[in-house]
Nucleic acid binder design. Sequence first.
DNA 1: TCTGGGGTCCTCTGTCGA
DNA 2: TCTGTCGACAGAGGACCC
Length: 342
Amino acid sequence: MDAFYVSVELRRRPELRGLPVIVAGSGPRAVVTTASYEARRFGVGSAMPAARARRLCPSGVFLAPDFTCYREASREVMAILRAHVQTVEVVGLDEAYLELTGLPAPHATMRLLTREIEQATGLGCSVGIGPSRLVAKVASDAEKPRGFVVLSRGQACERFAPAGCGLVPGIGPRTAERLRAIGIHTLGALAAAPATGLAAHFGVRMAAELQRRARFEDAVAVSEQRKVISESREVTFDRDISDPVKLEQILEGLVRRLCVALVQQQRRGRTIGIKIRLDDFSTHTRARTLAQAVSSADRVGAVALELLHRFSPPRPVRLLGVRVAGLRAGDGGAQGQLTLLP
DNA sequence: TCTGGGGTCCTCTGTCGA
DNA sequence: TCTGTCGACAGAGGACCC
């Protein structure tokens, strides 16, 4: 979907169409979730601190995120996809891979789908069609908004050879920087680099994976259902917190929120973890695996608090989180009962 | 002036039992 | 009985994605 959250907001606030609209949190440490294409012309982009976005685009209309509304819009769109295509792999609220193999007229089907989505929901999207998820993904991003790009693997290699390595999913800012440091600036250069030299810097496995991506080689099938293996709740404070009692109270609140969700879904997990980001932005995790899967707030909370005590933050804390991993469906029995901390 | 929330996956390291 | 090897698993950190 093109600028999805902003587009959903514009459905109910059409008077904002054509303006630089930015969906972002309101706190001092909020970041931009989505920016309209008008706002992007000011240099505003996703994950940018909202304060910086305000400086770059003082005339921008800032809206608070409404995820309940975005989830509903996402459901509408995904339902349309499923009505036309059997295998749909949903990735987040605004993206999906469709398996088109076997369809008599895949291009026409996708043209029809985009029209139907637009007519039914008022939301625009971009389509990339290719022999793999990797080609399709990069193709769909290539001509946003309202793009429709069809590429073979060879065409993708040729078209994106001059592009930076970070264009391809799986090569993020860190890896792109490391590549630049050894003189590899483009996907073409990465694809053509000697494997041994690359392996010396990245290890054999990672080097091979980087080159596979640069050559747009991808054999991963479109899968209908992604299995959730962990669930977490975390919060960044407006101001760093040093008071251990205050941190405990916040952790208990996070545990309650997480466990309410787990119990509702009748899921339990064996591994309980906490996440702490200190004022120097260093991030630390501590985890413990139990003999039995749990979901109740008293069991999860006891472990989480113990982990927090043991870590004993040496500096002020800016983020605190709790996570339950190794999830599996529960039986809704005694452990599934909701128990709240006092 | 800094840098969200909720996830997945990979690598490295240490431990433990076969 | 001792030693070395290997795989499984856990824990920690980090990169990446939407």
